[in-house]
Design a protein around this nucleic acid. Structure first.
Length: 580
RNA sequence: CGGGGCGUGGCUCAGCCUGGUAGAGCGCCAGCUUUGGGAGCUGGAUGUCGUGAGUUCAAAUCUCACCGCCCCGACCA
């Protein structure tokens, strides 16, 4: 295919648009790939769409290869199936709701477990029809609290979602593994480096899951991993052998003792003079309203609560910190003086690090007072122990004792082994060999296609623009006659573009009558892997100029060899994005 | 939703504090000169100064409300 700049819409921007914070977002705008309609809403311009289609094609090829079946489900969904699954309420804050002319409510689908499970409930009846895996590439709608960073977190985005249905647990695990392998191939083919991490299952429910993470400073997630690659987990899920400083465990006294701490309301206040209680010798008391119950979380003073772990421990994702007044009415003191000594009738969840903690200091539930000589197991009204803390860098991995590293990353894919949550709720059952009704065992698998595209850019750019991996580049070659008035140059560019195009290589000809500098700058922005320029200087020597965008290397190549040379350079780049 | 910031030609921004003719650079159009890494000169077009109210002789500028956008937090592909 040959595209011509003057026939396209490639509105490059000289200056950095004020709305864009991170490099990939800036480059998508500056290279003329997308334009914003509103927060979290983007139009793909022709070049951006071409790149998006490349990603989609890779996804399709790999899903098909893994035996998944492509379907297309409606974005508009009836609320009833969401009520059946229980997510009408659980996912209420991301659901876009619309009304038809009769005032009936509809949902703009944020995901499609309910729809596919309803379909399977109707169409699959026997173990002979299993396993099956259905996927689609489709637009999703989520009422994000805060859309961000262009396509990274949008209100409307394109997702590949797949759902597997199995008759047996082993089968479901196998389906999961196939998707895991397919995802690894997909991201590799997109030219992305990914870290695969253990993940929290969150609102999706389910048994276990992995996330595919693209390491990037601008990522919204944090992952903990060991350098040897043997352990990697989302920070929400990660655990360790515990903090470097052990928890005090000396027996300290017969009974807790109240002491005055006027003006002390933070861990830091208490660790400073005159009290000098180190943070790891304090018990931090956090009060949450979970659905409508008051729940207390206890942690060592120097630990941070991990909200995903707390949600798992509390059995609900619907919670918020209690207000100062709510703390007062529940415990009799305001935040800063809270504790769980002698608390009655409340759920108190304590972090495992407090198990053998003795001689601790915590709030006295009386403003201006704390309690010392507290032995967690003896004195605190703990109703449940759970891992609640967020791990820190350099702590040792539980599995292999290696120190943990923590870095930021972009989540581009997520695979879940779901179990029977949805199949039971929506009645997706099959008759097994023995004639018994069984719920299908499900898995679900998502790739943020638009996010993946932006992640590719986030991982591959330089000061001059995008550096596309050949597999997702909107065009493989950008060609130009340096002097657009030179009929000889123009004719040669056209001839070579034709030859490349005939060899199934896409070419963008910059046919503008612009000065060379303008066209060079834009070529770097747009980021095609190979730039071919024909100028009168090199032409006089019977050569053309070939530049490899990624390395910046420029070579003068005899006219007769140029097309073959470009093919070879591209072939070398294709080698780097091969799966396996 | 809590906290912070910002809305002025297509883009980047100045002007606002201290009210008095709406500006610059880039881009766009025309012409001439230029022509291998964002050219120069000349001329030109383009603004409900986010919206609405208020104060005032007078509002881009002060006040209030609303809307939109961006950043930090919770959510997620």
């Amino acid at each position: 295919m040959i595209y011509r700049w003057t026939q396209e819409l490639i509105p490059t921007l000289r200056e950095v648009p004020g709305e864009a914070e991170i490099p990939s977002h800036q480059w998508m705008l500056r290279a003329g790939l997308i334009r914003k309609l509103g927060a979290g809403l983007y139009t793909f311009l022709p070049m951006g769409l071409r790149a998006l289609h490349k990603v989609e094609r890779i996804v399709r090829e790999e899903m098909d290869r893994a035996g998944a079946l492509e379907v297309l489900m409606p974005a508009l969904q009836p609320p009833e199936i969401w009520q059946q699954s229980g997510r009408y309420k659980a996912a209420a804050d991301v659901l876009f709701k619309v009304e038809d002319r009769a005032g009936r409510e509809w949902l703009l689908g944020p995901t499609h477990e309910e729809v596919i499970t309803s379909l399977v409930a109707n169409e699959i009846n026997s173990y002979r029809q299993l396993p099956r895996n259905f996927y689609q590439i489709q637009v999703k709608f989520r009422d994000e609290i805060r859309p961000r960073f262009g396509l990274m977190r949008a209100k409307e985005f394109i997702m590949k979602d797949a759902y597997s249905f199995d008759a047996t647990d082993e089968g479901a695990t196998l389906s999961y593994q196939k998707m895991y392998a397919a995802y690894s191939r997909i991201f590799k083919r997109c030219g992305l480096n990914t870290i695969i991490v253990e993940a929290d299952t969150g609102v999706m429910g389910g048994k276990f899951s992995h996330e595919f993470m693209v390491p990037a400073e601008t990522g919204e997630n944090e992952v903990a991993y060991t350098e040897n690659g043997k352990y990697a987990a989302n920070l929400e899920k990660a655990n360790s052998r515990g903090p470097a400083i052990p928890t005090p465990d000396k027996t300290t006294g017969p009974a807790p003792e109240k002491f005055a701490t006027p003006g002390v309301t933070t861990i830091d206040d208490l660790s400073a003079a005159p009290h000098n209680v180190p943070a790891h010798g304090q018990v931090k008391t956090l009060v949450f309203i979970v659905e409508d119950k008051t729940v207390i979380a206890l942690l060592r003073g120097d630990d941070q609560l991990n909200e995903a772990k707390f949600a798992a421990a509390a059995g609900s994702t619907i919670f918020r910190p209690a207000t100062s007044e709510e703390c007062f009415s529940a415990l009799g003191a305001h935040p800063g003086s809270l504790g769980a000594v002698n608390v009655k009738g409340l759920t108190v969840i304590a972090d495992e690090q407090l198990r053998n903690a003795r001689g601790m200091v915590t709030g006295a539930n009386e403003d201006g007072f704390h309690v010392r000589h507290v032995d967690a197991e003896r004195d605190l009204a703990i109703t449940k122990w759970h891992d609640l803390r967020t791990v820190r860098a350099d702590e040792l991995s539980v599995e292999n004792g290696e120190p943990l590293k923590i870095r930021r990353a972009i989540e581009v894919g997520h695979v879940f082994k779901l179990g029977t949550k949805y199949s039971e709720a929506l009645n997706a059952r099959f008759l097994d060999q023995d004639g018994h009704q069984q719920p299908c065992i499900m898995g679900c698998y998502g790739i943020g296609v638009t996010r993946t595209l932006q992640a590719v850019i986030e991982q591959s750019w330089d000061a001059n623009g995008i550096i596309w991996p050949v597999s997702v580049a909107p065009v493989e070659v950008q060609a130009m006659a340096i002097n657009a008035q030179s009929a000889e140059s123009v004719a040669l560019v056209e001839r070579m573009a034709k030859e490349l195009s005939d060899a199934n290589i896409s070419v963008l000809i910059d046919d503008r009558d612009e000065r060379a500098g303008v066209k060079f700058k834009d070529a770097d922005f747009v980021g095609a892997p190979i730039r071919l320029s024909v100028g009168e200087r090199s032409l006089a020597k019977g050569a053309v100029e070939i530049k490899v965008r990624r390395t910046g290397e420029v070579e003068q190549t005899p006219i007769a060899e140029a097309v073959e040379r470009i093919k070879a350079l591209l072939a070398a780049q294709w080698e780097t994005v091969k799966a396996e």
